[in-house]
Nucleic acid binder design. Structure first.
Lengths: 356, 356
DNA sequence: GAAAACTAGGAAACCGGTTGCCTTGAGAAC
DNA sequence: GTTCTCAAGGCAACCGGTTTCCTAGTTTTC
């Protein structure tokens, strides 16, 4: 049985067809073939048709390397994840890829795994491949040193930001997200709000905590106790709940620094006989579906809209590539996602009386 | 303040240095410069040094497009995720990138999002870019139609497999994993094992369930009830536990089709007053750290070793690129990861008596 | 019927490297 | 002193396209 021939490889099965093959088949010169396929030059319509059908027959696809060589553009961007590819990087990448794919650009993926040497290696690789631009991303929102100085291509930092204020960074408004969480709890009538979050030295934990404290202060309120800094785990959420329950002060809401922590809190509250949201309302952060939906009850959470962030980053990169850079930090808002963990407002009237 | 000059752009800040720039600076011809940098030809050592230092000074990095054009190789592979990039794709990508990076190859990432049109679009893009090979992956292990016929470059399917047995696929041994889970429970003395898993039409659910049934049969045992097919969620795990508890038959172990299901089972068992593992031992599948570690108690699980799978796929692809294809399905073993949900063997003696 | 104008398409340079072949000059052999 | 040999490095073709410039042939115009 002879090998099936498809349009993809109708010519020689081994190497892909070149424009010379097309020109020969159509009986024209290479230059003419090029013009015919790109709608340039002045050619008879019949000639164009002949060339086009020859190209179809051979499954001709122009060699991108050749195009790159004389246009100087690769229609390729590099994406360097400074940490490991993870839960946060995925939606970022998806969003970026979305925006770039629409502009027919491809994405080179590089996972630097928190290793500065790998990072520089990848940077060199990308520059050697003459990418049109680079997106730098990571697992943490904390600002980092620029990946390079005076690079020949534009760079956009997404999620993570650069310490150089002249670099272009796109970051989620974590403080704004914390404000929304607190505002929501206040609107529900809760006044005794506790905060459980990740490690104090972690940028996101610090930002979210201080934003929460500040927002409460603006309403003349204090957090119940100090923010409980720990780790980003369910176990810590459970443990912290024990601390809260053991303390003298009562609380009617917990704002958590992550959905995982919130879930630990929910489990521990239930085990202690407290009802969510009736006795204690609960708000998480990240809106990680797997956690927020499986939580009992499903978790109200703050969504950083990472996919949109990735798209924005890609759009800014495309703009910079086209000569319209937009330097500086671009802050993009978070969104409050309502679910049952805050669904039932508790005795709003009596709460208001309590306040008076 | 003049712009800082770094090695990266010591020449003209705009366009990167070419080999002509290097040759001019070193006072030699372009060909000679090339030979000097690549250790070819016969040149005086002093000349080589001069060229090399000129290249250093200009931060010269050869233009990959030019290299591609005359070597025919791009040192690039495409990676098409047929589904969305997700939890399973990440370790696969990491592993693949690891193996490829060692061979100085870069990875083009394409997310086809379960859309056949996007898939074919990406395939064309990759072929037009003359990638040296393609890795196809996805969220499900079920075999899928080949992504293309008689493609000019080698293709390896990872995790997912191709329906064409002549294609090269690397898949986890899910049946073997289920065997390990059952064997482990049997070794602990459990004899009344139930199975809760995902949708019946889902390949992984079907394979794992029938492997479990078969392994029990080999020991002369039956599953407690029929496999409970549902969905891949904690909620289903909880619901299924209700069904098990309501049934007449007792059970002392549950093998779950995923860690999420297992976690739901664990929560529901605890709520019903059954102790894990004392009363009921629990084994999950996937070894998803976030679920398995946060579970109370931490979950024994089957790890498909996806990162290794990705590495293997990449290695097979590299071999195929180098002219040594290894067609067929390559099955790679799963690993049992022990944690507390099966830690305590229950009265092995009495169980044995019971069996007699 | 001859000059002008226009059209269709070919030839060749170019992008940035690599490589085979050829030239040049110096030292060795006679 | 002349020829031979060999080392060092320049020249040019080539990879696969695009684009500019030019030529040949046809049509228009007077």
């Amino acid at each position: 049985m002879p090998p099936r021939k498809t349009k993809e490889n109708a010519g020689s099965p081994g190497r892909p067809a070149t424009i010379s093959d097309v020109a020969r088949l159509a009986g024209v010169s290479v230059g003419t073939a090029s013009k015919a396929l790109n709608g340039r030059g002045s050619l008879r319509e019949e000639t164009r048709r002949r060339v086009r059908s020859a190209a179809d027959e051979l499954g001709f696809q122009p060699n991108t390397a050749a195009l790159t060589l004389n246009s100087g553009r690769t229609y390729t961007v590099g994406m360097i994840t400074t940490d490991t590819i993870g839960r946060f990087s995925i939606p970022l990448m998806t969003g970026a890829e979305d925006a770039l794919g629409a502009g027919r650009m491809s994405v080179f993926l590089c996972d630097a795994r928190d290793d500065p040497i790998r990072e520089q290696y990848y940077l060199r690789t990308l520059l050697s491949r003459r990418v049109d631009g680079i997106i730098v991303t990571g697992r943490r929102t904390q600002a980092r040193a620029p990946i390079g100085v005076d690079l020949p291509v534009p760079v956009v930092y997404a999620f993570i930001s650069s310490t150089d204020p002249d670099d272009c960074s796109v970051v989620p408004d974590e403080a704004g997200g914390a404000h929304k969480a607190v505002d929501h709890l206040l609107a529900l009538g809760r006044r005794r709000i506790a905060h459980v979050t990740g490690p104090e030295h972690h940028h996101s934990a610090a930002v979210r905590a201080s934003a929460a404290v500040q927002r409460l202060a603006a309403s003349g309120l204090d957090l119940v106790g100090a923010p409980l800094f720990g780790e980003w785990s369910e176990a810590w959420g459970r443990q912290a709940t024990g601390i809260l329950l053991g303390a003298a002060e009562e609380f009617d809401a917990v704002f958590c620094g992550s959905d995982q922590i919130a879930r630990g809190v929910a489990d521990a509250l239930r085990a202690a006989g407290r009802r969510v949201p009736d006795d204690v309302a609960l708000v998480g952060f990240d809106n990680w579906d797997v956690m927020a939906l499986a939580c009992q009850p499903p978790l109200t959470s703050i969504d950083m809209e990472l996919e949109g962030l990735g798209r924005t980053a890609a759009d800014l990169l495309l703009a910079a590539i086209n000569g319209e850079p937009a330097p500086g930090r671009h802050v993009s808002p978070c969104r409050l996602v309502l679910r049952e963990s805050t669904a039932v407002p508790v005795r709003p009237v009596s709460t208001r009386v309590e306040q008076l």
